[in-house]
Design a binder for these strands. Sequence first.
DNA 1: GTCTATATTTTGATAGAC
DNA 2: GTCTATCAAAATATAGAC
Lengths: 199, 199
Amino acid sequence: MTDSPRRRGRPGHDQGAVLAAAVRLFNARGYEATSMGDLAEELGITKSSIYHHVSSKQDLLRMAVDHALDGLQEAADEAAAMPAPPVERLELLIRRSVLVLADRLEFVTLLLRVRGNNGVEKEALNRRRILDAQVTELVKQSQLDGDLRADVDPATAARLMFGMVNSLAEWYRPRRGGATALADAVVTMAFEGLRTRKV
Amino acid sequence: MTDSPRRRGRPGHDQGAVLAAAVRLFNARGYEATSMGDLAEELGITKSSIYHHVSSKQDLLRMAVDHALDGLQEAADEAAAMPAPPVERLELLIRRSVLVLADRLEFVTLLLRVRGNNGVEKEALNRRRILDAQVTELVKQSQLDGDLRADVDPATAARLMFGMVNSLAEWYRPRRGGATALADAVVTMAFEGLRTRKV
DNA sequence: GTCTATATTTTGATAGAC
DNA sequence: GTCTATCAAAATATAGAC
């Protein structure tokens, strides 16, 4: 269990190591602003060596955003499969999304900065749109059930909720148990609001 | 009032026109991914001509983010000068910030994408941090007054609130009166929450 | 798995004419 | 205010040796 194949001695870098370094640099300097030379320097190898592990710079971007999207998709599927009212499935989706964001922080951060400037980015935006629609639908159903206030447009509510969730990528830094507490804070604010109830 | 100086005939482009086109492109493709050649093509002039209006690419970025930051700073100053309890000053700050974001949408959008990759960006991040601290302080005071729930960390609450506000840059598109309605939605969600009150 | 060497393109910016 | 011409640096990527 400890040793996976192709992991003896010190055989130089593998694709995972290259990807991890790339994602770190892409987030720090921006995808476009990061050159393959920068990445090579970070890894301590030459530019050409990188092309032994990946076929292009876009390939690195694709692997990274796919990892983020797969995690978020799992969260959405899990919430959809839950045998409970929409408002509870929505809460679960928010909590799970916060946990995925915390767990795959660097990958999700990169995903959230994608703007559709190339084929890889366009495809990522498409997958994000599908997830977005699922959230909006949950809000809509919750309003029909009378569980969420109907005076806020469902799409707007969904976007504001995930505006909060996604903003975590800008400032959250891993701490023990921090993600669960953060999920609580997001759910509290989204569902109950911050104002104290009149005594 | 209608004619400002230096605006007769058709004397080619001025700095404002170059800046507007630059901000549009920076948002669409990213600052680093946009070349001075792209900008020249967008304007229908050559690269060299751009340097008649601005001294560098960073200069364009600096003018853009300063315009955004000046607007947000005004909103914060106005809220701070309001003779009212902290919780009301906080609500005003949120509303004013939404309106500034809507009014200077492209400039604020660019500002929010800045990561500190050069001197201009570092300076912008510094000014943002100061604004952030002002919001956190308002939340803290509101909690001490018993107006906001004390079981959420003030800095976290402030970041989540402005996570919502800032997320508008990702999807808000101008409509008549839309910004005020949006400010209502943000304030409602942040202060009252989306869940319906028990009858 | 990493290297040197190289091809090709694009970049931000300047000089100086009109 | 815009142009042509030009530059030096940096970019992504490939070929082929070790």
